[in-house]
Simulated scan of single mutants.
Amino acid sequence: MTIEINLLPWREARRERRHRRFKQVVVLAALLGVGSAWGVASFYQQRLDTQQQRNRYVQTQTQQLDRDIATLRDFRTTREQMLTQIQLIRELQFSRPQTVRVFNQLTRSLQDGVYYTKLSREGDVLRLTGKAEANRQVSDQMRALAAMPVFGVPTLSAVEAGDDGQRRFDLTVREVNTSPPPDVGEGAKDKGATP
Rank of each mutant, 00 (worst) to 15 (best):
V100I: 10
S139V: 08
D74M: 11
V159F: 05
T99A: 13
R101I: 07
Q98Y: 14
I89Q: 10
V138C: 02
P9H: 02
S139G: 04
L8C: 07
G162N: 03
D190H: 08
D170F: 10
L28W: 07
L72T: 09
L28C: 10
E16S: 10
L8N: 14
R174I: 13
R101A: 14
D183A: 14
S42K: 11
V102T: 15
G35M: 03
E4M: 04
T77W: 08
G165N: 01
V184M: 01
R18I: 08
V27Y: 10
R11D: 05
G130A: 01
V176E: 14
L92R: 13
D68A: 12
S42W: 15
F94H: 10
T178L: 15
I3K: 09
M142T: 08
R21G: 14
P195R: 13
A146D: 13
V26K: 13
L110D: 01
L119C: 00
N6M: 01
R76Q: 08
Q45A: 14
R136A: 11
P149H: 06
Q52C: 06
G187W: 04
L106D: 01
L128T: 01
L88M: 04
T2C: 02
V102S: 08
R143F: 11
P97V: 02
G152Q: 09
Q46V: 00
K189G: 03
E91V: 00
G123S: 11
R79T: 09
Q51I: 14
V100D: 14
T194N: 06
L171M: 06
A30V: 06
G192P: 00
P154N: 12
I86N: 02
Q166K: 12
R18T: 00
I5S: 02
T194S: 11
I3A: 11
R121Y: 02
D163H: 11
L110Q: 05
L31A: 09
R108M: 10
A134I: 01
L31T: 12
S109Y: 03
R17Y: 14
D74V: 05
E133L: 12
Q53K: 09
Q24A: 05
F103I: 15
M148I: 01
T2I: 15
R14F: 10
L126A: 08
R15F: 12
G192Y: 02
R47N: 07
A134G: 08
K191C: 07
E133T: 09
A29D: 02
T77Q: 15
F151R: 04
F94C: 00
V176L: 11
D190Q: 13
A161V: 04
T78Q: 06
R17H: 15
T50S: 13
A37L: 07
K118L: 08
R15N: 13
F103N: 04
L8I: 05
Q105L: 03
Y116C: 00
G123M: 12
Q59W: 12
L128Y: 03
R56L: 07
R90C: 06
Q137S: 06
L110S: 03
D66Y: 08
R101Y: 00
Q53E: 12
F151G: 10
E122P: 03
L106P: 00
F43Q: 05
V102G: 05
A146M: 03
Q141A: 03
Q137F: 01
D170S: 10
T62W: 07
V150T: 14
W10H: 15
L65N: 06
E91W: 07
R96T: 09
I5C: 04
D112P: 02
G130H: 01
Q98G: 06
E12G: 15
G35K: 00
I86V: 06
G35L: 05
L28N: 09
F75E: 15
